[in-house]
């Protein structure tokens, strides 16, 4: 899952990025509303964490503008203002969830996963496909009931493929959900991760569509 974090305070942004990465999420951090818009138009994100006190524009008006432009991404608003009217205004402006600073990192991660789950139309925390079972929140995978240990990137890759439900994902799309834009990507890194996944979960689980990308084999997993 790729998260866009819009937060102007360096110290907090560092903390959230480190925490979410440690929890297996891919995070892009930006500091201003303008940067956030540029990022959203350039890369695919699954969820946005938005701080309301931004230097160039109030987070609330940015959110309203997004919603007016039919931006459908789930947005979690992060704020230090705890008045009820602030929260109501945030939700009215189109926030999907609201978290008050200071928050618990685990709670933030759980809420992000819940947002994503709701956006995907699922009501349970785990994704099951045949004998494969993925709990994105805990980062646990099992095949035929036996736990499989996956690395952070492999988990993210599996999550992205499962979320697509058999749709073909291009190499760029897969890279987007695996790496933040500040991270160095080696040219064959994606192939290596696909290779590892096939080795751990079975060769025919991930199908290669030549010249297009990859897709999860929904037939018999």
């Amino acid at each position: 899952m790729r998260v866009l974090l819009v937060e102007d305070d360096d110290l907090i942004a560092h903390g959230i990025q480190a925490g979410l990465r440690a929890r297996g999420l891919t995070v892009d951090g930006v500091k201003t509303a303008a940067q956030a818009e540029t990022t959203l138009s350039a890369v695919h994100c699954d969820v946005v964490i938005l701080d309301l006190g931004l230097p160039d524009e109030d987070g609330m008006s940015l959110l309203q503008r997004w919603r007016a432009d039919d931006m459908a991404l789930p947005v979690l608003v992060l704020t230090a203002r705890d008045a009820v009217e602030d929260r109501v205004a945030g939700l009215r402006a189109g926030a999907d969830d609201y978290l008050l600073k200071p928050f618990d990192l685990d709670e933030l991660v759980a809420r992000l996963h819940a947002l994503l789950r709701r956006a995907a139309g699922r009501s349970v925390a785990t994704i099951e496909q045949g004998a494969l079972r993925l709990d994105p929140e805990r980062g646990e995978v099992s095949l035929h009931g036996r736990p499989v240990v996956l690395s952070r990137r492999e988990l993210a890759l599996l999550g992205a493929l499962l979320h697509a439900r058999g749709r073909i994902l291009s190499v760029d799309q897969l890279k987007d959900s695996l790496y933040g834009f500040s991270e160095e990507i080696e040219s064959n890194a994606l192939n290596v991760h696909i290779h590892h996944l096939r080795r751990k979960l079975g060769a025919d689980l991930i199908e290669t569509v030549r010249g297009v990308g990859y897709r999860f084999n929904m037939g018999d997993a």
């Binding site: 110290l11 907090i12 903390g15 480190a18 925490g19 440690a22 200071p102 618990d104 990192l105």
Partner: peptide, 9 residues
Amino acid sequence: TALKTHLQV
């Protein structure tokens, strides 16, 4: 928030 987040990290 920064303090708490970094401690949790």
